[in-house]
Structure formats: structure tokens, C-alpha cells
Design a protein around this nucleic acid. Structure first.
Lengths: 236, 236
DNA sequence: AGGAATTTGTGCGTATGTATC
DNA sequence: AGATACATACGCACAAATTCC
């Protein structure tokens, strides 16, 4: 039986791409896995090759699929410049170094007034982290996640990639964001381990992240040591 | 006769989208213009509707076309975050303000050693500009354009959007770039009109721009006054 | 208000080109 | 060189959104 395409349902090609995304998030499709040939896959899904290709294009645009002519379609869900960590765009000046983070503090509170207006809830979770690139402390980070997406947050559950945590644990799919980069003094709560003392001039990345429904789910600020790291953006 | 699709030529749908882009850049298609219905357009171009739709999708992904079901396809070439000026990513902290620039200096010389390796030529054109957002001086800019793309450059010919100039005058189509944002002292050649004196801490945007063939055609550096402007990046 | 005409969106099937193995 | 697999291109039918009378 063909997948349903009645009523107000999503278009078929989006149903397929979302199904594949769920398979990736659930671990049924691991990084590097090769999908069956398009014709076989289309036949087993009982859809046309053209529709399947449109679904795969969606995945590709999300950076979750690597399409190689003459070879095959390969899942990409690991830490690559275009993968999961594409969202995190601080890189070592010297190059290299995988991004990791240590949670400093997690708390739920009312949104302070100086935050940009976002989300539906009055409350938000505040997460403060020290971010590393390789062994090098590179930035201190403060995240505000709208409380509508999670009742409570357990620090121990957080993975290095918060977006992965959002997707897998909270079912929250971040589809886009907007960054503003400027200069700002290092905040007072930065631990000594972070090279810059409070008040020192740091680069500041302010981010607003959007969920699939277009609402702003999360707001974050990253103060980075410009001697160590730089913000990187790639287009096209 | 159908458009040629032989040898190592571009795919047909890319030929069509590039033709439309040239029409937009040349002013033959103005902002807000409505294209003919897809079926008519496909017939007059002697291509299939599917191929035309793929070309239009390309334009849409470049932010140059607004597709409205039941209504039509509309050109968008005005200064919007996703439009022609999408490449220019400095914005006023206060918001608003159209980007313009005043050329300070144009010279052709050997590439200095401190530049990242780029382009095929030994020489490069150095363009220095003072950039404005509205009436506000926001950044000083130094551009290195590989000499392989132009024998000489006349300062008077440069438009506010260099990418427009590249496309229209040089036939050089910039398809992507990579930005690195950090902190750097204001350069000595910055004019007094730029708020920051030489040596003052400024934001620095280093850009490498790629041509369609994947080569790096241009390298630029923008020092911006973080009291006035911020670097902005949007994803998806 | 409402229905017909117009226009883009979705989906299918097929044939051929081209890169990879 | 041959087989495999993705990319491009064509054409058709119907659905959904918009516009117009």
C-alpha cells in the first residue's frame, strides 16, 4: 500500500525525508551507512524514483546525506564541517580540534528582560558551558532554551552537541538560525580556565535558533578568545 | 533548436538559471517582475516544464525568485537579506541602512606573502574601500582580486556591489565564500572618517570567495567598528 | 459570496547521460 | 570493458492555491 497522501498530510516526499530523519536520530541509520540503490529503495517504499530523489534532496540540503554519482547515497550524521557541528562555527585559528563542552551550570528561571523576545513560555532553561576545541578552552557559552520544549533538563544527559540532544531527547528539530558577531567584554562568570579574565575584549556570537514551525526555540551567546578561535561561516 | 547540451557544457537547467540571472543583473528583469506561466515559458524556451522548474528552484535557492502557488513566479533582486546584498553581511547594530562604499585606492601589484595562497596569477588587484551603512562609516575594506580575472580595473567603474561588477563587467560569478571573524587592530591606512583610529580593536572579517570552477577568485578583509556594526550570518 | 479559470505544487513513469566501481 | 548507480531531461495527470469574474 502506498504511503498515505490524503487530507492535510505532508507531501509524500516530505513524509519520506522525515521518516529517514527519524531513522537517523534513532540510530537505525548510522553515520556512513549506504542506502539501497534509488530504484530498489523506491520500489520497496512503493513510491516513484522521482519522489524519492526529492526526499533525498531534502536530506542533502540538511547536510544529512552525501550523494555520490555512480557510487551511492551515504548517511552523514557525524561531526563534520557540514554535519552536526555545522551549527557550531567556532574554529581554532590554527585549525583542527574537535568541539567539546563542559557544563558549568543548568538552571530554570524566568527569562531576563535583556534577552530578545522569543518562545511562548515565560520561563527558560539557562545552560552555561565552557567550550573546547581539542584540549584548548575556546569560548564560554550561555544558552537560553524556551521552557516550552522541556519541563526539566538534566545536566548529565547533555551531549557535546546540544542540537543532537534537542533532536533525540526533546524531539526538537532546529532548522535554522541567525548569528550576530561583534565584540563584548568577557562575562564575570567565566571560569579562570578560560584564558580571558572577566572584562577582557572577546568576540561575541549571539544566536537565535528556529524550530521547524518558525518560532525561536533558543537563544545563545558565545564569548570567544580571538587569540585562539575564530567564527567561520561558509556560503553555498 | 533546443539549447545545446553537448560536451562538457553545463546542465540545461543551470544554463537556464544563469541566463535568468544575467537578465536580472542586466536589468532586463526588474524587481517584482512576474515571469510568464511555467508552461508558456517552457514552450518558448523549448524545454520541458520539469527542467524549467529545476532552473527556477535554483533561482529560488539564491533568493532571486519568489514562487507562489496559484499566483506566479516573481523576481526578487532588491536589497534584502537574501538578495543581491546577501554577500554583504555587516549590519548596523541599530538595524537598517543600505550598504554603499567609497573607493579609496585601486592598484595592481604582486600578491604579498602574507595573503593565503589563491588564484592562478602572480599579480592581484588591491582595492581599498570605506564602507557605509546608510550614512554611517562602518568598515574599512581591503580586497585582493586575482589578476587572472581582469587585466585592469578602473575605480570609476566599480559599483557598490562588487559582486555585481564581477558578474556584469568581468563575467565572474561568485558561487560561495568562507568568512572568518575575529579581532584585529585597525589598519594604518584607515581614513580619519572611519571612527576607529589605527591600532584600535576592531572586528575583522576575512573572506575567501570562490568562482564556479572552485578556485578562489578573491580574498578580502573588513575591519569593522563593533560599536556601529555587527557581522550577521543566517542559515537555512 | 461563489464558482470558474489560471497557475504552481506534487507525483509518476521512462529514457538517456555520466561518474564510479 | 562492463556493470552499477546517480544525474539530467522529457511528458503527463491531478491537487492545491490564487485570482478573477
Amino acid at each position: 500500500m502506498p504511503p498515505s497522501q490524503q487530507g492535510g498530510a505532508l507531501p509524500l516526499y516530505l513524509q519520506i525525508s522525515e521518516m529517514l530523519i527519524r531513522d537517523i536520530a534513532a540510530g537505525r541509520l548510522v553515520d556512513g551507512a549506504r542506502l539501497p540503490p534509488e530504484r530498489d529503495m523506491a520500489k520497496s517504499l512503493d513510491i516513484s524514483v522521482g519522489t524519492l530523489r526529492k526526499a533525498l534532496s531534502e536530506l542533502e540540503s540538511h547536510g544529512l546525506l552525501d550523494r555520490r554519482q555512480g557510487s551511492g547515497n551515504y548517511i552523514r550524521s557525524k561531526a563534520t564541517p557540514e554535519g552536526i557541528y555545522a551549527f557550531f562555527r567556532l574554529e581554532l585559528v590554527a585549525g583542527g580540534g574537535l568541539p567539546t563542552a563542559r557544563v558549568l551550570d543548568v538552571a530554570r528561571m524566568q527569562k531576563p528582560a535583556d534577552l530578545p523576545c522569543f518562545g511562548a513560555s515565560i520561563d527558560a532553561h539557562r545552560i552555561r558551558r565552557l567550550r573546547f576545541l581539542g584540549a584548548q578552552p575556546a569560548a564560554v557559552e550561555e544558552i537560553w532554551l524556551d521552557a516550552g520544549h522541556a519541563e526539566t533538563i538534566v545536566a548529565a544527559d547533555l551531549s557535546d552537541s546540544l542540537y543532537l540532544y534537542y533532536r533525540e531527547v526533546l524531539g526538537l528539530w532546529i532548522t535554522g538560525y541567525e548569528d550576530q558577531v561583534g565584540l563584548s567584554p568577557c562575562p564575570g562568570w567565566a571560569p579562570p580556565e578560560f584564558g580571558q579574565p572577566p572584562g577582557a575584549p572577546c568576540g561575541l556570537v549571539e544566536r537565535q535558533s528556529r524550530a521547524r514551525d518558525g518560532s525561536i526555540a533558543e537563544v545563545s551567546r558565545n564569548w570567544f578568545d580571538s587569540n585562539v578561535a575564530r567564527y567561520v561561516a561558509r556560503m553555498r
